[in-house]
Nucleic acid binder design. Structure first.
Lengths: 340, 340
DNA sequence: CCTGGAAACGTAACCGATAACGATTGCAGT
DNA sequence: ACTGCAATCGTTATCGGTTACGTTTCCAGG
């Protein structure tokens, strides 16, 4: 293999092999209609020049590119899990994955980021896109699969069973004897946030406890949003004995506020989160939370998108994956209560 | 904004605005030579059609694309840290980031993956690439920055101060009174592995302790490689009282083997790792290790690559970042020894 | 009124690859 | 030798933009 300065192009290969670019293209793509001798010549030239076909040129010309895109608002620890799962689903499938992050939009909280990202990719580069936690509906000429879609979306999506997970979490607190349970909600437009709140309401209602709207704080999944809400809940004359937060990030902030106010966890206050991010195992006490496997979400999303692109998807438009309660140290019976 | 099925192309905009595509291009790219009235017309058409320029077409024609690439062998939890750091360095710089993962190569341990990935991107899509832990030298027409390069590489790179980190780790063990310290090495071709072994040797030599080659196991950073090596070390007639592993992944396997052999950590055996991956804080006992900030590595690599592309890089070819010893519970003085 | 030159804009080649189509070759059958 | 049909291969238009270059417009100055 000869290392050249400028990367070899298809016409370089064609010149060296003494054929036309069309023939090189046919060899590269395994099309019919090339003699064995010519194939060998072209292969040789390709090896000599270290030729690798340009993703860009191929994408521009072809309708199918065999590349799937993934766009995300920001990179978190769970993003790596999603990517791992997606790559597992794609391994040796012939589909490559491109993750695109725009430097202007990254980290800023501007509406419509997912549309712009997808538009940039789906013009010609990718055959379809996975969108992680979109804030709005995303449309595209090519298939889209959302992980954690917006509420009311009928588009293709993969999501955890947030309703059941939240119900289980609150039932866990109820089982410990809690009766006044606060809730810190997520970004209202997201289906995940809505389902988790529904689970909270359902568990209480099923236990015959009326839902007290003043015990619900309107967070937005952004951890910082939880701090003032937790403060407000815990400084009331009649504070809740437990708080269920719609995400681990927010639950961690609840722990911070509790420490700041001199409340012992789980002695004075029980806390439950949702997501099971790695950090929640590291706090003291470790956070009881609801696990949703981001790996699994990534895996299913990629599998679904792949089938959508090839036109062989048979499953439902919306895939729901199970969740699991992870009991750690942040919950205990309320003061002066006996375990029911 | 009208939602159309097929994404609007530049000639669509040109037709609607009643100008040529060249003029649209000039407006989009802010070039001189367009009247204010025409600019307004074109802007209007762009908004009406929801036009977004095609990354692919632009890349193909232009030499500069303002997109940087990042390629990695696999997605790990630390990969997200690298990405976070890189995006921080790139935010509002005008450079976007593309991460490319090939489904054929992913997870398989085939030589030359980094070359193929980079070739795929640098043909035309990106202005430069960050390569995370390459296994070989990577060449390209466009600038390359390696995170954790191969040994002996003179190319641009960012790496942690592995030598100092390893030295500190072993000095910590020596300070506790250990004299027979085993070492499980990493993939020999990587500079990081070599430096960590050098640090191990240097610390021992400085303490006047001869290096015993039979106490060194040849791992490859793959956690599984450590299991038989740890077993061999610990089942000797004269086992070491401490083991320093060149990565946390391997150190965690050492803990497993110790448990399997009925050895108490840190009572019977002290263990130190390297990397400070999230999991090392979760084990019982938690792993003492050397922290290298992957966030910082990603940040510096992106900053360097950006400057390299714009031609304004003034710093050294190789950037070295400090490390820090994180003392947790996996180390104690050896049995029957007093702290020196 | 005429000329010169800059500003504004269109035309067309081009980036690297693909694919429809046309041209050439080889060979079997008459 | 001639026809006919495959198999093989080259030509060329094309994907969506960018840009060198040419053309037109417009206005100031002589």
């Amino acid at each position: 293999m000869i290392e050249v300065n400028a990367p070899a192009t298809m016409s370089d290969v064609a010149r060296v092999a003494g054929v036309s670019t069309a023939t090189v293209s046919r060899v590269v793509n395994g099309h019919y209609g090339v003699s064995a001798r010519t194939i060998a010549q072209v292969r040789l030239a390709i090896d000599q020049l270290g030729y690798e076909s340009s993703l860009v040129a191929t994408s521009l010309r072809r309708s199918r590119t065999n590349v799937l895109g993934l766009v995300t608002h920001s990179f978190q620890s769970y993003t790596a899990e999603v990517l791992k799962g997606a790559m597992k689903a794609l391994s040796r499938s012939g589909f490559d994955l491109i993750i695109y992050a725009n430097s202007d939009l990254y980290g800023s909280y501007s509406e419509g980021w997912e549309k712009r990202h997808v538009a940039r990719l789906s013009g010609t580069l990718t055959d379809g896109c996975i969108v992680v936690t979109p804030w709005g509906e995303v449309q595209s000429r090519t298939p889209i699969v959302a992980i954690d879609p917006v509420r009311g979306s009928t588009a293709h999506s993969v999501t955890a069973d947030n309703l059941a997970g939240a119900t289980t979490a609150v039932e866990h607190l109820l089982g410990l004897g809690h009766r006044r349970i606060g809730f810190i909600a997520g970004r209202a437009s997201l289906a995940a946030a809505w389902s988790r709140e529904e689970g909270y309401r359902a568990a209480l209602t099923d236990a015959g406890i009326p839902v007290d709207p003043t015990l619900i704080g309107e967070g937005d999944f952004n951890p910082e949003s939880a701090t003032p809400l937790a403060r407000a809940l815990l400084q009331r004359a009649d504070p809740p004995t437990a708080i269920f937060a719609a995400s681990d990030g927010m639950a961690l902030k609840v722990l911070e506020v509790a420490a700041e106010l001199g409340l012992a966890v789980p002695g004075d206050l029980s806390v439950v989160g949702f997501d099971n991010i790695p950090e929640s195992a590291l706090t003291l006490p470790a956070l009881t939370t609801v696990d949703q496997s981001m790996y699994q979400l990534g895996y299913e999303a990629a599998r679904m998108l792949k089938s959508l692109v090839t036109g062989e998807w048979e499953g439902p438009r919306q895939v729901v994956l199970p969740t699991e309660l992870v009991v750690r140290g942040s919950c205990a019976p309320p003061r002066g209560a006996t375990r029911t």
